[in-house]
Every structure is written in structure tokens, then in C-alpha cells.
Design a protein around this nucleic acid. Structure first.
Lengths: 191, 191, 191, 191
DNA sequence: TATGAATGAGCGTTCATTCAT
DNA sequence: TATGAATGAACGCTCATTCAT
């Protein structure tokens, strides 16, 4: 009785997201213009803002969709045996995050929201990622003296650090993989 | 003939920085508008850009000044003996970084620049911070199996992670100190 | 079979008007939004337009109600003997008209409608006012060389002029009363 | 020293006004779009708002220009001998005011401003009109018992009343001339 | 160096009104 | 009658940055 969301509403929202995805896949996230989204979706501008608080809200959704499909793949694989393998598996996600500065910034900003109420699509994905990664930590060689939750959060921290340095140090010769690896080994391995 | 920097030039730059600091101390970094800076400094808009590459260049200067004074204090203290003490000592810096979302974002963006050529004031400060912290790692109980440089970078990563979560998880009941502590213990301590 | 107006219909309309009045008494006419009217009345937006041609139709109703009660009082008093007394008696109406620029504009726009077919609540009130005022003109000292109908219309013109100047000339030191009086004396008195 | 307005500024403003006039003369005031003004003037949108507070501010200017040229003509003619002749002379102005509802509303709203400080173009024109008309009142047959200033203001009141009724009473068979005449005779003539 | 008018792309907003269900 | 999602056309604004003087 509360809010029997209408079919039409859902259809409109879907049209908006589909239009957004089309634009992004053609020109990247940075190229997305609200004006074009509504024109492609065939709805009025006012409608857009009735569905999304602002442009960023759609961006979050769109990024969330991408992250979700990456995470779907990640969930299906068996737990990697080494930190190098771990990094290898995370690579698709890292590459997506690093594909556009704009994307990275948005993820960074909305990622932590995983802990609060009005958790957005990105926050949910980060949460999923944490869960998946946590599932990997029950492996041989991984330290047992630290709460896996903390370990997973730490991995997250190193991921962000790695990507942030990647953006700043454009001419750096250290690859994402090796940098992340050099953090994860001492963080995860029993010694 | 090289760079006979004129007195007037220096004076103008000083006026701009003073104006910037005044605005920031009144309304925060986020509220700083080039328009107001020049109006307070009594110069024209164009003059601003003759002195600073862009607005961010001034921002960096302003933030750099603050960070520097915090770091000056940090350099004078003896190396903390425990991770808790370490967190305690870093608190002033954390609190400044967390004082405004805008400040945090800017630091995040320019921090990694420490690795590249055109290193700015913020990058320098992050570098100083890293050096100071690295100096603490020669203590008893700190693991020796990892390059201190990597350890220091890891601390940085945990600092950023902690602050990022702090921003998003407004209602969280975990304090900055305890969260950072729960990262640093397993990261730094031999076991 | 003609118009068996249902109880529900009347109830809905009453709710809408009540909601409108509540909003107006809280924030003024200018602040009335259809959105809020229906939300307070607990009906859907579409329902509003099933009851009122447009927003202005409600506005007219609302203003009409106020004007009516002012006019009821005005009808009961004996004809004033002087133009000053006349102005005095008209004051409550003037003050209401001047209470909000928006109200004045609306009255101005719909007042003349008195001459056409689809006469609305405001037009009716202006007509009533004209009738009342015309009844005052049969007094001693009032010129007889002009059709009382024209005289009454002229009074109306001076009222509007006075109020219009009142809005623009905020800092003017001439009161509504004295300005209107200085128009009415030469207009009404035999000489 | 205060504000040595630059030539370029003046040129830009002139371009803006010229563009506005062109649009108005093609499609009427109601058809003016800020977007088109700037596009025709070949300047940026931001520039428009640097010169005019908002769209209405340009409208005022544009209407002011038209009124000015009508008033220029009005100033050159000899004082009319009768109220009918007076009405006849005022006709061009009346017709302009009545040419578009939008124009009339704007004039009505800004006319009285003639009395205050931040007097706009329209206010100035109304003032000029009053002066011109006042000059006509020194004629034979015009009553002497009332301050010409009041008489002129009264004429203004009747003009607005006439035009307002003209708009509302679309199907009315009374012409502007005859209605205005029926007000002016008893207002102006000695009896 | 200094000036300050001009740039400019696009976002967010407004909110009365319509219409398919 | 009632519903409420959708409409839609502009407006106003932002404000760091550029460039001709």
C-alpha cells in the first residue's frame, strides 16, 4: 500500500539508464550529458530529475552496473592461492576504476558509504567486493592473527592507494600489479 | 638578469596569499572564490593568474602552509613507542585533513604527485610526513621483514582509508583513532 | 439528473480550499503551490484540476473570500459624508490589496473581467465594490454633471493608481490615504 | 577615476540591445529569448547577465527605447486644445502599451518606480510623459483649482484603467478613445 | 606586470498542466 | 472522479580561465 511503484515508472527509469549506458559505452563517463540522456531516452528533462537527484546519482547507477558485472565474474572464480594471483583476479576491477579519472573520483567519494544508511550503488559494490575478497582469506598462508574484515578493508585501502599513485605518477614505471603486490604480501602473509 | 624579482611582484603575491588565508579562516577552503581573493587583495582578476597557474595552485599553497606547521611540530617529537601513540601524534594532521571534504579531496589528488616532477606544496608535505613516519619505524617491535618505505606508504594508505570512511560513515561510532589503530597494529608489528 | 453533485465532490473541494487558505495564512498567496495544496488536502494533483480550471481559479476563490468579508462590512456602514471619510472606509480593502504584490497583480488582472461573460469571484467583488461606492455618490456636495457609473469607475482607477504608486514608491512619504484623497477631492466634488 | 566605463563594454551592451530590438521587431516582446539575444549579439550567455540583472532588465531597456521615440514625437507637437485631441495625441503610446499583454504588465509594474531611486527606463519614460502632459494643462478650459501635477497623475490613472479594461473586456464595444475621453472630460474641464 | 570584460558549456530548477490508467 | 508520473521550455547561474589593451 505504501508505494506500489508503477510499471511506467520502472520503464522510464530503465530507459534513462539504458540511454546513459549507451552514451558511456560510446564516449566514456566523462562525455555523459544530461541533455543527451533525456533526448535519447525520449523523456523530458524534468523527468530525469524526478528519477535522479542529480547527474551524479545516475553516474553512480551506471558505474554500479559495470562494477556489478565485474563482481559477478569475480564471485564465480575459486579463491586465488597467492597474492599475485589475487592481484591478477582483481585486475579487471582495477582497470575499470582507472579507466577514467572521473570514475575513480566518484568511486572514491561514494565507496565508504557502504557503512551508512543511504548506501548507494557504488557503496553496495564495494561491500560486495569486500565480501568476495574476505572469502579468499581463508586460504593457506594467510595470517590468522587479524580479523578477516580488517584484512579485507586493508586490501581496499591498498587498492585505492595504488590507483591514486597510478594517476599521479603518470610516468612511473611501476605497474599497478607490482605495486599492489608489494603491499599485499606483507599485509596478508603470515611470517 | 636572471630573475630580478621585483619588490612589487612579491608584495602582490603576498597580498593574494594573505587574502586567501583570511577567506579560508572565515569560511573554509571550499568557500574560496578567486573573485573574492582579488577583490580583497585589491588587484585585478588577471593578476591572480599571473602569479598562480590556477586556483588550485593557491589552494595548494594555502593547505601547504597549514600542513607545514603541523609537520614542524611532528618533527620535534621523539618517535612514539606504540602504534596507539603513533596514531595520537598523527591526530592533528588527520583532523586538519578531515576538517573539510574539499581539503581531503585536494590532498588526496595532489598527494601522490610526490612521485613526479612538478611536485607541489602538498606533495612535498606528504613526502615530509612519510620521512618523519619512516623515522619512527626503527623502533623495537616494528617488523623488519618489509622495506620501511613500503611500510610508510602503507601507513599513508591506511590514513586515507580511515579518513575516507570517516567522511562517508557519518553515523559510525568508530573513532578515527581506533580505526587507524586497528590497521596499523597488524601492519607494523612483528608477530 | 442535472447535477446531482455528490457529497464526496463537495468534500474534496472543501478540503482543497481549506488547504489553500491554510497555506495562504501561513506564507501568503505568493507561496501557494498546487503541489502543497493537494498534499495537504490529501488528494492527487490531477484531482485539483478536476475541481479548478487552473491554479488561478483557486486563487480567485481564495481572494474572493477575503474580499467578500471586507465588502460585507463595507455594505453595512452608512454613506460617508466626505472624501476623507470615504477613503477611510475603503482602507481595509486597500490594505488587503496592498498586502502582497501578487495579490494586487491578480486583482488588477481579473478586476476588469467584470465586463465580460465569465466573470470570476474577483470581478464580482469589484462589481460589488463599485455598487457600494456608487451608492455613496448620491450625497450632498458630490458633482451631478457626471454619470455616477463613470465616477465610480474613476474611483477605481484612482485606487489602483494609488496602490501601484505605493508599491513602487516604497520610500515615499505620502500615505495611501492622503494620496487617494488628493485624487478623489477634485474628481468627486462639485466646484 | 571611479568607473571609467570602457568602450568595449558599451559596444557589447549596444550589441545586446540591438539584438533584442531585432528580435522584438520580428516576433514581439513575448518572443524574446535570452538564448537568441546572445546568439545574435555574438556574445556569451554569461556576458548577458553581466550587463543585465535578468531578462526583465533588458525588456525594460527595450520598452524604454520604444517609449522614448514615441515621447520624442509627442514632445514636438503643440498642446492639444480639447480632451478629444489630447486622447488622439496619446493614442500611439496607448497602442504600444496595448500591443502585447506582456508589455502592459511590465509597464504597469515598473511605471511607478518613477518616484524612487533605482528608477528604470520605463519609470523615466512615465516621468517624461507626465511632464509632457502637464505642459498641455495650461490651456484654456482646463480647471485651475487642482495642482497640475495631480491632474497629470490622474490622467495616468485613467490611461491605465482604460487599458486594463481594454484587456479584460475583449468583447467590449467601447473604444479606447471614447472610454479615456469619458474619464478625461470630467477630470480636466472646468465646470 | 596589471587590467577586467568576456567566455562558455551545461547543470539544476521551476511548477502549472496534461493524460493514460 | 481520482491518480501521479510525465511534460517542457527557458531561465538563471556558476566561476575558473583567457586575452586584448
Amino acid at each position: 500500500m505504501e508505494k506500489p511503484i508503477q510499471k511506467r515508472t520502472l520503464a522510464t527509469r530503465a530507459k534513462l539508464i539504458a540511454a546513459g549506458e549507451a552514451i558511456v559505452s560510446e564516449g566514456g563517463f566523462d562525455a555523459l550529458r544530461v541533455e543527451e540522456v533525456v533526448s535519447r531516452a525520449g523523456v523530458a528533462k524534468g523527468t530525469f530529475f524526478a528519477h535522479f537527484r542529480d547527474k551524479d546519482a545516475l553516474m553512480e547507477r551506471l558505474i554500479g552496473v559495470r562494477l556489478d558485472s565485474i563482481l559477478d565474474a569475480l564471485s564465480d572464480i575459486p579463491a586465488p592461492k597467492t597474492t599475485d594471483a589475487m592481484v591478477e583476479e582483481m585486475l579487471p576491477m582495477l582497470q575499470f576504476m582507472v579507466s577514467e579519472r572521473y570514475v575513480f573520483d566518484l568511486i572514491l567519494r561514494y565507496s565508504g558509504a557502504a557503512l551508512i544508511d543511504d548506501i548507494g550503488p557504488i557503496g553496495i559494490c564495494i561491500g560486495r567486493h569486500e565480501t568476495v575478497v574476505m572469502g579468499w582469506l581463508n586460504a593457506e598462508g594467510v595470517r590468522r592473527d587479524v580479523d578477516p574484515k580488517i584484512l579485507a578493508e586493508g586490501i581496499q585501502a591498498f587498492v585505492f592507494q595504488t590507483l591514486a599513485l597510478h594517476f599521479c605518477a603518470l610516468h612511473s614505471d611501476i605497474s599497478i600489479q607490482s605495486r599492489l603486490g608489494s603491499y599485499l604480501k606483507p599485509w596478508l602473509l603470515a611470517h
